[in-house]
Design a protein around this nucleic acid. Structure first.
Lengths: 385, 385
DNA sequence: ATAATTGCCGAAACCGGTTTCGTTATTGAT
DNA sequence: ATCAATAACGAAACCGGTTTCGGCAATTAT
C-alpha cells in the first residue's frame, strides 16, 4: 500500500479495505484442483474440449468453495457485464415503477444478472445518461419504457448497435424486440361494452399521442366506434391528458359541450381519477348519469367511490418478460423471436352502467349545476397549488 | 471470431457485435498524444508526478476525443466499479420508491457513479442478493433502506467490511453512517399540537417496532405525553400496523374501547388512510369528532377528504444525501463525519381540530352507529379480496 | 565541480478472468 | 506397424486499464 512518495491528490485514505478480503479467485480454484486457470475457466463455461469428468470435478469444487467470478474481470475479455440498463424519466410513471422494477430485477437476479438504473429529468438527459452507461459499459443492453411513436432512444441504440427491448411498440420496428399490452384491443372492447350498456355518445380522453401506447389506444377507440356504426366526433376526443388535474379539466370541458357524452373512456387511470372530482362538483353520480371506463388498474381506482371499471395491466409481469427478452437479445437471439404481447384484463367496477339520462337531459342537469356552483364559493384546500 | 473447432455449448451466435465498435481506448489516446498509456492514466487521475502542462494536454485531448474509461477495466486494478448497491424488499415501501430512486440516481449520475438495484421478497433473499452483488463486485457499497433496530444486513456488511449507509438509524451504531429524518420529534410535536387543540385522550397507531423508525416514533409519542403530563394508557397504543387495511382495523379497535380517543396519531400515512373508511362507516367527521395526524406526506393524503394533516418527508432529498454519503464512505471518509438528519415538516390539513365531543360522548355516538351499521347490509365492492 | 535530490516520464508488471494455440496421449484407419 | 485424427489439457497471450519502479535530465546542495 506504500506508494513511494507518489500520491493520488484526490485520494482521501487507504486504510479502508473493502477489497477482496478472502475472496477466492480462479487461481485458488485451479490450485485446489491441480489444473490451470484456463482449464478451470473452460470447464465452468462448458467448453467442449473439457472432459465430462473434469467439468464436473471443477463445477463441484467451485460450488464447494463458493467461487463466484468477478463480473468486471469477466467483462474485460467478454465485453459483457451481465447487467440490464434502465433509464427512466422522472415524471408521471410513478404508480408502476415499483412493480416494474420488482419484475425486472427478480428475473435478472434469477439469471445471475443485475440491473443498473438511472433517472433523468429530460429526454436529452435520458439520452446522455444512456450514452454514458454505454461508454462505461455499465450495462450490456437497455429496457426502454414508454416508447414513443418516434423514439430518439431507439435511434441512438440502433446506431450504436447496442441491444435493447421496448416496453411498448413503435413506428419503425427495425431491430426492435418488445413486450407490450395490446391496449388498442382494450379500448375497442370498452367502446363495445359501453354501447351494449346503451351509450351512444362516448368520448375519449387520451394521453399524449407522441407515446405509442396513446396512439394505439386512440386507434382502438376509433375502431370500436366504426365497428358499432357510431360516428366519430372530433370534439369528443381530447389528447395530451397526462395527470389527474389534466383529466379533471378535460372531463369538465367535455361535459360543457352542447351535447355532452354519457360515457367517457380514458386512456389512463390517472386521467380518469379526475372525473370523480368533477362529478362531485357537478352533482353527477358516476356509473349513473356519467359512465367512465379507463385503463391501467392503479390501486387508487379500486379505492375510488364508486370503484373504477378499468383494464388492468400486470406491470410486474411486464418487467419479468422484458428482463428475460433483453437477456436473450444480449445473448444474440434474433429480434423477430423476441416480440411478445399480452391482453389487458377488464376489472369491472361500478363506474359504468346504463345511462340514466340522455345526452340532452345531462346537458340540462349540468346547466343547473353550473349556476349553483357559481353561487357557492368553493372552499380551498391547504394543498392547493 | 473463429474458434478453431471449439465451441461454447451455450452460445447462440457470434454475429452480434455490440462490443467496442469505435470505442476509443486509453491506448488510442496515448498514441494520439505520443505518450505511454501509463502516463495518460496518471494524468487523468491527477497523479502528482505528472507535470501541469502534460496533465492539461492529456485532459483536453481526452475531452476532445470523448474518451471515457471502461468502468470494469478500471475496476480490475482498483477494485471499485463506481456503483451504489440498493436491495429493497418488495412489500410496502411503494409510495416512496420512485422519489427515492430519483434522488439516489441523480446524485450518482452527477458524480459519474451508477446505481445497481435489486429486489427481494424476503429478508433472507435480501441478504443473499447483497452477498451475490458483493461477490461479483457489482456494487462498491450499499444503501440500506428501512433499517431495523437489529438489522441482519448491517451485521453482514460489517462482517465483510463493505461500506454502507443507513436510511434510518439502528441500535448498534458501530461503523454506521446514516441519513435520517427525526421522526420522534415530529411525533412529540404532534402530541403537543393535539393537546393545544384540546385533546386529552390521544392514541397512537404505530408501525412494526422492529423497524427503528417505528421504535423511535413510539418514543416520541411517549415523550410528548410525558411532557404534557398526560398519562400513558397501554390500550391506546397499537403496534405492527403496516397497511391501510391494518390501519382501518386498528382505528376501529381503538374507537370500540370503552373510553375512545378523540385524537389518533399515526406513525404512517398508509395507516392513517384507513381511518377515513372507518369514519365514513361510523358517521364520524374527521377533524371534528375525531382528529388524526400522521407522518410521511404521501400524495393520497392531500387528496383525502378532509386533507390529512401530516409530517412530510422529502424522500428525493433523502436519496440524494444517501448517495453522496455512500460515495464518500467508499472513498474512505470516517463514518463519524457521515451522519446527517433532517426534521420532518408539518403540513397542516384539516384532519385535526378541536374536539367537538368528549371521549364519553364519542363513545355514545359510536354505540348508536354500531347498531345502525349492523342493520345495514354492507354492499361489497368488486375489488374486495 | 561533484553528489544528491527532484521532476517527469517510460517500461513493465499486474489485476482476474477468457480465449487461442500448441502439445501429448489415445484412438481409429489403412 | 504407421499415420492421421481426435480428445483433453497446459501454456501463454490478451483485454484495458492502474500502479510500481527505474532512469534520465535538470536543479539544488555540498
Amino acid at each position: 500500500m506504500i506508494r513511494g512518495g507518489l500520491m493520488r491528490l484526490e485520494n482521501l485514505s487507504d486504510d479502508i479495505d473493502s477489497s477482496g478480503v478472502n475472496r477466492i479467485t480462479i487461481n485458488d480454484l485451479a490450485e485446489a484442483l491441480n489444473l490451470t486457470k484456463g482449464t478451470v475457466s473452460k470447464a465452468l463455461n462448458e467448453y467442449s474440449d473439457i472432459s465430462e469428468a473434469t467439468r464436473l470435478r471443477v463445477q463441484r469444487k467451485a460450488a464447494e468453495l463458493d467461487y463466484r467470478p468477478l463480473a468486471y474481470a469477466q467483462a474485460i475479455k467478454t465485453g459483457k457485464v451481465r447487467s440490464l440498463g434502465l433509464v427512466f424519466q422522472t415524471d408521471s410513471e410513478r404508480p408502476f415503477l415499483a412493480d416494474f422494477l420488482t419484475g425486472v430485477s427478480q428475473t435478472a437476479t434469477k439469471k445471475n444478472w443485475s440491473l443498473t438504473v438511472a433517472s433523468a429529468v429530460s429526454e436529452d438527459e435520458v439520452l446522455s445518461t444512456i450514452k454514458r452507461l454505454i461508454d462505461e459499459r455499465k450495462a450490456d443492453g437497455f429496457i426502454l419504457p414508454r416508447t414513443k411513436v418516434k423514439d430518439a432512444r431507439i435511434e441512438l441504440l440502433r446506431a450504436k448497435n447496442i441491444p435493447f427491448v421496448l416496453y411498448g411498440r413503435t413506428q419503425d420496428q427495425t431491430d426492435c424486440a418488445w413486450y407490450d399490452i395490446v391496449g388498442e384491443n382494450a379500448m375497442c372492447q370498452a367502446v363495445e361494452r359501453l354501447y351494449l350498456l346503451g351509450h351512444r355518445n362516448i368520448a375519449f380522453i387520451n394521453s399524449n399521442v407522441e407515446y405509442n401506447f396513446a396512439h394505439l389506444r386512440l386507434q382502438g377507440y376509433l375502431k370500436g366506434l366504426k365497428k358499432l356504426g357510431l360516428k366519430h366526433d372530433d370534439n369528443m376526443v381530447l389528447n395530451g391528458v397526462m395527470t389527474t388535474k389534466d383529466g379533471e379539466n378535460a372531463t369538465r370541458k367535455l361535459l360543457y359541450e352542447s351535447c355532452p357524452p354519457t360515457a367517457i373512456l380514458y386512456a389512463t387511470d390517472v386521467a380518469a381519477l379526475g372525473a370523480y372530482k368533477v362529478a362531485s362538483e357537478l352533482g353527477l353520480q358516476i356509473g349513473k348519469e356519467l359512465s367512465i371506463i379507463s385503463y391501467d388498474g392503479v390501486p387508487e381506482g379500486a379505492f375510488a367511490n364508486p370503484p373504477l371499471t378499468t383494464f388492468k395491466i400486470d406491470t410486474k409481469k411486464a418487467g419479468e418478460q422484458l428482463a428475460a427478452l433483453l437477456i436473450k437479445r444480449v445473448n444474440g437471439e434474433a429480434v423477430e423471436l423476441l416480440r411478445e404481447t399480452d391482453p389487458a384484463i377488464l376489472y369491472p367496477g361500478e363506474s359504468d352502467g346504463s345511462p340514466t339520462v340522455s345526452s340532452k337531459e345531462l346537458s340540462c342537469l349540468l346547466e343547473e349545476a353550473k349556476i349553483v356552483k357559481n353561487l357557492t364559493k368553493k372552499k380551498g384546500s391547504v394543498y392547493d397549488d
